[in-house]
Design a protein around this nucleic acid. Structure first.
Lengths: 254, 254
DNA sequence: TCAAAAGTGTTAAATATACACCCATGT
DNA sequence: ACATGGGTGTATATTTAACACTTTTGA
């Protein structure tokens, strides 16, 4: 269920790996992968969930089953990594360059892990990546590392570590798409807890767009959308005047 | 070079067809196709270039070569059909449903054409469609029917004939994307001749968005963009006062 | 000379912007 | 009481919308 460059785990025996690759090439569509930029928001910065693959990091990804719809594959991969369903998830771009393969990276990884590398391995193929981004409430996520229990961590989306292939570019593309999207439709609340305050939403938008937004105007514009309903006040943990809590209005009926 | 359901031509001998299918499965990535909604504008209505495949019509399409970038494949298909390069061309959606195959349609077509149908034909597979739309100056296009010289025709985009599979849905999606796109970026002029008038552009936007746009405001907004430069007047063929001609300013340098 | 289409201007409404003011809370 | 952050109001600028007026042209 993991991606071409994420399928292994140190504990796996040699046999298991080649067995897994054999099975995968039977179950999945060849030459097509799904990569997800899972975005969270914590302590005033945007985070992205990455997997540790040795020297470099990768986006969580997977393949599309031969009997599986593309979107279902994306939902499956996201759930596998975060344990969450029903999250905001959107295909935002397709990376289809002919030279897009992980051959050299995989060879290096095999060398590091002491596996025998073969030219005709399924995962050496050229892949078209279906690039999704997902918005999650970071505090709700308990990353599992997927079925393979891979090492993983939240990284600053604006300060990415060395990443494989074009994965840094994909994550960057996700951020740019997110910037465009929140100026048109109201989706940003997916990054916040179910109950949130306007100052929180305000800081979130400033962080995503990376620019100052006038406080008064932002609040009025958001409330004028008539999408949120006000609840009693927020108490705990805030040092000064307690802001109102809001949540999305009638999320189910429309 | 043609699409799974468009690859044949009545003149082709039986041998040629199976030979072609054999070659195609060697040259192209499996399970992935490229379909293009080629949009033109004529006599106040939006047109789309369709191929005649017997009972139903299809969008022009093709496959991605194993050594070819996805976008290059789209450019190639578009040029094959229209003889044009450098047109506005954009991936707008991916259709990845698991049940997306042409099995029954192909069987019916084979029956009509008197070919022997086989269960394991390459073209019976499930396909993920990379859906592009292209904007062309209809008067510049001399549709060739592609390398296969298939029958083809311009159809009204708002009054589509019976089409294969989800091709009507794809064309509809292209139109909806175009509506969204022209409200944000100025791309509509790609549907007009190189030199055009503001009334032409005005009618074009009204047609695409399917609603009245106030004439005065539209003209001022367009000119305020500072994207067009005014030329001498349009003469011939117009019945009343002759409008100014415009063209895009500095199309090359920016 | 008149109707139709094109080009431009003028005013009112709606929105965006900037900033001011008051409220609640912890120190 | 005062500094900080939150909530709201008000004056101004900008943009959008509606419509009026003038010009050109063919019938």
């Amino acid at each position: 269920m993991a991606k071409c460059h994420n399928w292994f785990h140190p504990q796996l025996a040699l046999l298991d790996i080649y067995q897994y690759l054999q099975q995968a090439s039977e179950w999945y569509l060849p030459h097509v992968s799904v990569d997800i930029t899972i975005i969270g928001f914590q302590e005033g910065t945007l985070k992205v969930l990455l997997l540790d693959s040795g020297e470099k990091w990768t986006l969580p990804g997977g393949y599309i089953g031969k009997e599986e719809s593309m979107n279902d594959a994306a939902v499956r991969v996201l759930e596998d990594r975060t344990g969450l369903t029903g999250q905001y998830l959107k295909l935002f771009q397709v990376f289809g360059d002919k030279s897009r393969n992980f051959k050299e990276d995989i060879r290096e990884m095999f060398r590091q892990q002491g596996f025998e590398w073969k030219e005709d391995l399924w995962i050496n193929d050229r892949y078209i990546s279906m690039a999704y981004y997902a918005l999650v409430d970071l505090d709700q996520v308990h990353p599992t590392g997927g079925k393979m229990n891979q090492p993983h961590a939240w990284h600053d989306l604006n300060d990415l570590p060395p990443m494989w292939m074009d994965h840094a570019q994909i994550a960057q593309g996700a951020l740019e798409q997110l910037k465009r999207d929140i100026t048109i439709e109201q989706i940003s609340f997916n990054l916040l807890p179910e109950e949130f305050t306007m100052p929180q939403l305000h800081r979130l938008h400033e962080t995503i767009l990376d620019k100052k937004l006038e406080r008064s105007r932002f609040q009025k514009k958001m409330l004028a959308l008539n999408l949120f309903e006000r609840l009693p006040k927020l108490k705990e943990d805030v040092p000064h005047r307690k802001p109102y809590l809001y949540r999305i209005k009638d999320a189910d009926d429309h």
